[in-house]
């Protein structure tokens, strides 16, 4: 899966924010911490959930179950607003 190109990611007020570009209705946004930032970074390429989890485990010192739960939560939020291409 991959992040659709009509969404942008930026840090605003110290948090990671993803919004759709263009003004055709507000289809929502996703916002969060550095972990979300890293997940979105990984999703710039075509990746699997497992690949995202392992790239995060390289960067953050956290147990795998915790990281996987964060990744699944983020992916579900991104799917909900149609930001992912499977």
């Amino acid at each position: 899966m991959k992040l659709k190109s009509d969404f942008i990611v930026r840090e605003v007020n110290g948090e990671t924010v993803l919004v759709p570009i263009g003004d055709t209705g507000f289809s929502g946004m996703v916002r969060g911490n550095k972990t979300l930032g890293a997940i979105l970074q990984a999703l710039k390429a075509d990746v699997t959930e497992d690949e995202i989890v392992s790239s995060l485990l390289e960067r953050f010192d956290a147990p795998e179950e915790k990281v996987r739960a964060d990744v699944q939560k983020a992916l579900s939020a991104l799917r909900k607003i149609g930001a992912l291409r499977d």
Partner: peptide, 26 residues
């Protein structure tokens, strides 16, 4: 404030302009 601002500030269709808009909000 961010959620309110993002709803009322024009979000350009151009990617660079959209990114710059978020930078300005920051």
């Amino acid at each position: 404030a961010l959620a309110y601002l993002l709803r009322q500030i024009y979000r350009p269709a151009g990617k660079e302009a959209a990114e710059q808009t978020l930078t300005l909000i920051d």
